[in-house]
Design a binder for these strands. Sequence first.
DNA 1: GTAATTGCAAATTATTTGCATTGCC
DNA 2: GGCAATGCAAATAATTTGCAATTAC
Lengths: 143, 143
Amino acid sequence: MKNPQEVFAEFLVKERLKVTSQRNTILDVFLESKEHYSPEELYLKVKEKDPSVGQATVYRTLKLLIDSGIADVVDFADGVSRYELGYGKEHHDHLICEKCNKNIEILDAAIESAQEKVAKAHNFQLTRHKMYLYGICSDCSKK
Amino acid sequence: MKNPQEVFAEFLVKERLKVTSQRNTILDVFLESKEHYSPEELYLKVKEKDPSVGQATVYRTLKLLIDSGIADVVDFADGVSRYELGYGKEHHDHLICEKCNKNIEILDAAIESAQEKVAKAHNFQLTRHKMYLYGICSDCSKK
DNA sequence: GTAATTGCAAATTATTTGCATTGCC
DNA sequence: GGCAATGCAAATAATTTGCAATTAC
């Protein structure tokens, strides 16, 4: 399987866009991150590697990462948009703690098949879905 | 079952807030709507009934409607926040056509119980969830 | 060479807030 | 009467855009 860097480079060529050091730096920082960065957070991390990069470039590059299928938007309902690596990762849903923002990735066959069933009942051809379960995690409910 | 107007009035009394004509007008317009209004759209509709109402009051009142359990936020991922009647309505998820934006409200016991099960397995106390199934509806797939 | 890209700052959009005035209870 | 609510305009936050200079191809 190709690595994300290759995928991105190929995407840029296909779209007749240019491979630049800024775009590569942003992708690298994005890939290194374990958290779900907001554009602002990503921007700050990128600046550690290359202080000359501007915010706008981060926003613009994030869009390209989404278009190329490398990044996905995650909705933590905390007011900021967040992103995660989508390319090469299995589909998953999210279990989010409303107190500490902990995020657990889940994949449940029963849910997935039930979703397929409902879609079929409505004659929908399912292309994708988003599911977020919000609650209080065990750590936070103890406090 | 109480109607939303009563519920809202009781909520205001309980919170020691005041019943005002603006709040009532906003609630009425909200209830009359069949679509999922954004705050801006709601504001414009409210102005038709009472041109003196300001945007800020609409935003402030929407918050109260959410706190009182009358309105829920719906995330259509179109950049604007949208609201729907929550009070008196059964919980439901959304089946959204990517071509015509048709929105079908669904409720599936198998999905709901599977969600509970997953949350329990992770020691989460579930408070709420959002699920959006995106696909192509039967009308659009014929074309 | 030339068209895409960049950083910057200004613009835009969505929402919130400060404050003087108004109005409910 | 007193304190919450309102409208307005200004403030904030998040994101986008115009533009002149730069850079990839």
